[in-house]
Design a protein around this nucleic acid. Structure first.
Length: 631
RNA sequence: GGGCGCGUAGCUCAGUCCGGACAGAGCGUUCGGCUUCUAACCGAAAUGUCGGGGGUUCGAAUCCCCUCGUGCCCGCCA
């Protein structure tokens, strides 16, 4: 209702401004939603009189009064009771009766659909989500990605779009060649059988640590030349063998493929356990290997050369030049403006002996040894998404350390001629630990498993302390609380922010947490349980509502606006904050007001309670958090 | 050196994109509230040079410039 009212008021202000004799372009920012507790400001307010007054040389109060008068005589929306002018602001006061009636009937009618919308022309959105690398365990960073992705995609679906979640596995690349080398050289069949992921991680870390140690030795000036040469030889032996394995894999070699498939299978089996525990799912698992094995990489390389947007470098290498002025608005199909011509790059290359000095970044799609790299696969993914899905948007939930890479990818994609698709990097901040940043290579990680287990243990402890839940149910309730804790924590900070993940703090169940919201919802259910019959909307008498009731009503009414904001930002944090706020208001509501024993507002407050639990259900549901009847 | 973020209460963070009326929460601190729909709760109090400086504006936490601090990226890895 507030959603429509806002649009109606905007049109009204536009007309009133013009009728009052002012020439001013009224846009969306002219109308603001105010805090319900501030009576003076009303529910919506507009400050446009200040800018008009500044230009017209008249006092803002007079301008505001003139616009308000005009609006009044044109006719205010039915839901608006009065328009007032305070210190130059035009304030619209909603009619509480209408607000109550419209909001409650809408929520109770729409039920689980409340807040969602159907888009007549929905976008087909293909999303890279979760995207762990195989042969490594899931860690806290994957937890943030997976949970944030799930919530954002749920919200985009609620906003009417058609979303396909692609768990874009990192299952291709030279790193797996390295791993095959390490396994054939040092691996152990029995250990692999026993705990595949752990063994593969050990081998991976062994390869990386040896390589970086040898690199340090090479640079060490105190060693003899002869020794340094030996070090280089040793380092190249391993690195070359790894590259060779990957090349064999790309060429479909039987042994390489068999080994790779084995690594991949054990990894996916393990990932699925964690995804099940998190209660998230994906529509497709088109890892990077898919695009390589299905020939999409070749399509890209041919197309790039055919369209004359790529040039050849050393050996077999091929790259797309990216100029510094290509980046602006590159994700937006309407506003992107790239220079696909190779002329500038050719001139720059001639003018500079060294490619490093040229004023463009080469976006490589083929390496000098003829193998592909992640950029090739990402372009292939875009091609595939357009061809197979007719995608309107290709979006990527990937940490912000890859910001620059995605900008380059998008430029390269535009140059390839993918001009009608929206490209969006949904970046999020890195998670660090209290003791410093994480690194899989150094072995400093907290696994997703550890986090889930600790949260579960903590939730079970607290349930035992409260002693309200039967032992039989305690564990499943604890699981839901533990998940609420983790999921809320992972989306509560706005995406862009780096966060420190303190496991002890995030399993605390007080204050600004998922369980706080769950608890409020549970209280709602508990109240509804105490009523003999479900309240009927036809029995609603909005005149009995007091300020506390109206405050809650207002929170309920603005839920759709919150989802709109989430869609705009591709973020779930505004929803998480909203639900927290709703929980606060609802907790105050039932503390201040008796519901079941209300003297003259029992039906009305039951309706409010029912509507509130509905929104907890819907909103927490979008965050992937279950509501509990008891806790 | 270049690029991209971030800097708001002791701590963790909303608000910034689209400038408006006294800058908001949670934790922690102090005080009060469970024979009354679950106290995983509620009420009250204290706490701020919105990193600093300049500019634009009737009006700046919000926009622009400079600066300091901090994180990440700058590989024919992903």
């Amino acid at each position: 209702m507030l959603y429509n009212l806002r649009q109606e008021l905007l049109a009204g202000i536009r007309a009133a401004t013009s009728d009052a004799g002012y020439d001013y372009e009224v846009d969306q920012s002219a109308i603001e939603l105010e805090d319900i507790t501030d009576e003076e400001k009303g529910e919506f307010s507009s400050p446009i009189s200040f800018s008009i007054a500044a230009a017209a040389g008249a006092p803002p109060v007079d301008v505001a009064a003139a616009i308000a008068d005009a609006h009044r005589s044109n006719g205010l929306p039915a839901e608006v009771e009065a328009v007032t002018v305070e210190g130059g602001h035009i304030n619209y006061h909603a009619d509480t009766t209408d607000l109550a009636d419209a909001t409650l009937s809408t929520i109770l009618r729409d039920g689980s659909e409340y807040g969602t919308r159907t888009d007549a022309d929905p976008d087909t959105i293909l999303a890279d989500v979760s995207s762990p690398n195989i042969a490594k365990p899931l860690h806290v960073g994957h937890l943030r990605n997976t949970i944030l992705s799930d919530a954002v995609m749920n919200i985009l679906e609620a906003r009417g779009h058609d979303v396909t979640r692609d768990n874009h596995l990192g299952d291709w690349g030279v790193q797996f060649g390295n791993l095959m080398h390490e396994y054939t050289e040092f691996g152990d069949e029995a250990t692999l059988e026993d705990d595949a992921i752990e063994h593969l991680l050990d081998l991976y870390q062994q390869f990386e640590q040896r390589d970086s140690m040898l690199a340090d030795l090479e640079d060490d000036e105190t060693v003899t030349d002869q020794f340094a040469d030996a070090v280089t030889e040793e380092r190249d032996y391993h690195a070359d063998s790894g590259k060779e394995w990957f090349t064999r894999l790309e060429q479909g070699d039987e042994d390489a493929t068999a080994l790779w498939e084995r690594f991949r299978t054990v990894s996916i089996d393990r990932f699925k356990q964690t995804y099940d525990d998190l209660d998230v799912a994906f529509d497709v698992w088109n890892g990077e290997s898919f695009y390589a094995q299905e020939g999409w990489n070749d399509v890209i390389i041919e197309k790039a050369i055919e369209n004359d947007v790529a040039m050849r470098g050393e050996g077999e290498s091929v790259y797309i030049p990216v100029y510094p002025d290509d980046y602006e608005n590159v994700g937006d199909p309407q506003a992107a403006d790239v220079d696909a011509s190779l002329d500038r790059a050719r001139q720059m290359r001639e003018a500079n002996d060294d490619l490093e000095d040229a004023d463009f970044d080469p976006f490589y799609i083929v390496k000098s040894d003829g193998s592909t790299l992640y950029g090739t696969r990402d372009l292939a993914t875009i091609e595939y998404r357009i061809e197979e899905y007719d995608a309107d948007q290709s979006v990527y939930v990937v940490a912000n350390e890859q910001n620059q890479y995605f900008q380059q990818l998008f430029v390269a994609a535009r140059k390839m001629g993918y001009n009608d698709i929206k490209l969006k990097h949904i970046d999020y901040g890195l998670i660090s630990l209290p003791e410093g940043s994480m690194s899989t290579r150094k072995g400093q990680i907290i696994t997703a498993r550890e986090v889930l287990d600790r949260a579960q243990d903590r939730a079970e402890e607290i349930i035992a302390e409260k002693g309200r839940i039967d032992d039989a149910e305690a564990q499943s309730v604890a699981t839901k609380i533990a998940l609420a804790t983790i999921k809320y924590e992972m989306v509560a900070a706005k995406r862009e922010r780096d966060t420190t993940f303190d496991i002890d703090e995030s399993v605390a169940l007080e204050g600004d947490t998922g369980p706080y919201v769950q608890y409020a919802a549970t209280r709602g259910y508990s109240i509804l349980d105490g009523a003999d019959a479900a309240p009927e909307i036809d029995d609603l008498d909005p005149s009995v509502f007091n300020d506390t009731d109206v405050e809650l009503l207002f929170e309920l009414a603005r839920y759709p606006l919150v989802l709109e904001r989430c869609e705009e930002r591709y973020d779930a944090a505004p929803l998480a904050h909203y639900l927290l706020q709703l929980a606060h208001v609802f907790n105050s509501f039932y503390h201040k007001n008796a519901v079941l024993d209300a003297e003259n507002a029992r039906t009305e407050r039951l309706l409010l309670t029912k509507a509130t639990t509905q929104i907890f259900d819907n909103g927490l549901g979008l965050l992937g958090i279950d509501v509990l009847e008891e806790m």
